[in-house]
Simulated scan of single mutants.
Amino acid sequence: MRAILPMTVALLLVGCASSTMEAARNGAPTAQLASHKAPDLVAQCIQFSWQEERAFGVDASGYLQARKTGGFTVYTREAESFVDVYAQAGGTRVDYYAQKDDQVALQRKAAAATCL
C-alpha cells in the first residue's frame, strides 16, 4: 500500500509534464540550437548540467526520456523548461522551451548551450 501512493504521484506528475510539453510544442520553441555532436551525448550533457545543484539549488532537476518519434527530451519538474534533441544532417538540433521568461530559464538555456 505504501508503495502505491508514491508510484501514483509519479505517474500523475509525468502526465502533467507531458501535456504541458505537448501544448508548448504546438508553438515555436523559445530557442533553437545546433551541434555537431551526437544527439545522445548532447541530451545526456544537458540532463547532467540541469542537475547541477550549485547552479539551480533546490530546482536542480533533469530527466531524460527517449521520444517515440526519435530523439530525446530532457525536462525539469513540471516541465518548466525542456529541450527536444533531434538528429539532423551533420549533427543535432536542440529545441528549447521555457514556460517563464525568468533568470532560471536563462540559466537553463545557457547550461544547454554549453553542451553543444
Rank of each mutant, 00 (worst) to 15 (best):
F56N: 08
K37I: 02
Q51W: 06
Q44K: 04
A89Q: 10
T20D: 13
E22N: 13
D95S: 13
Q65D: 10
T20S: 14
Y86F: 15
Q65P: 02
R25T: 05
L64P: 03
A43E: 06
L33P: 00
T76V: 08
F82V: 05
G90V: 07
V94T: 08
A43F: 02
L41D: 15
Q47T: 11
A28D: 14
W50K: 01
W50S: 00
A17R: 01
F56E: 01
A17Q: 03
Q32A: 14
V94Y: 01
H36T: 14
P39S: 09
K68T: 11
A55G: 00
P29I: 09
A43N: 00
A60N: 03
F72H: 10
S49R: 14
D84P: 01
G27R: 09
G27C: 05
G62K: 01
G62S: 04
Q51A: 10
G62C: 05
Y63A: 12
A23S: 10
A28Y: 11
C45T: 01
A38Q: 15
R67M: 06
G71I: 00
V58E: 12
R54I: 14
T20A: 13
G27Y: 04
G91V: 00
R25G: 06
R77N: 11
Y86S: 15
N26E: 15
V74F: 04
T73S: 14
A66L: 14
A31P: 04
F56G: 03
C16D: 14
T20V: 14
A34F: 11
L41E: 15
E53I: 10
F82K: 07
V42G: 05
A79I: 13
S61R: 00
C45Y: 04
A43R: 02
A38F: 11
S49W: 06
F56V: 01
T30D: 03
S19P: 05
T30Q: 09
Y75W: 02
A89C: 01
Y63I: 12
S19V: 15
D84T: 12
L33W: 09
T30R: 07
I46S: 07
Q51I: 06
C16I: 14
V42A: 00
T73M: 09
R25H: 03
P29A: 11
T73F: 07
Y86P: 02
Q44W: 01
Q65E: 15
A17G: 06
A79T: 12
S18K: 10
L41S: 12
A31D: 12
F82G: 02
S49E: 12
R67V: 08
A60S: 08
L64H: 01
M21P: 09
T69M: 13
A87W: 10
L33N: 07
A89T: 12
S81R: 05
T76Y: 02
E22M: 12
V83D: 02
D95P: 03
Y75L: 06
V42K: 02
R93L: 05
R67W: 01
A24W: 01
D84I: 08
A31T: 11
Q32I: 13
E80L: 06
A55Y: 02
D95T: 09
N26M: 12
Q47D: 03
A38P: 07
R67Y: 02
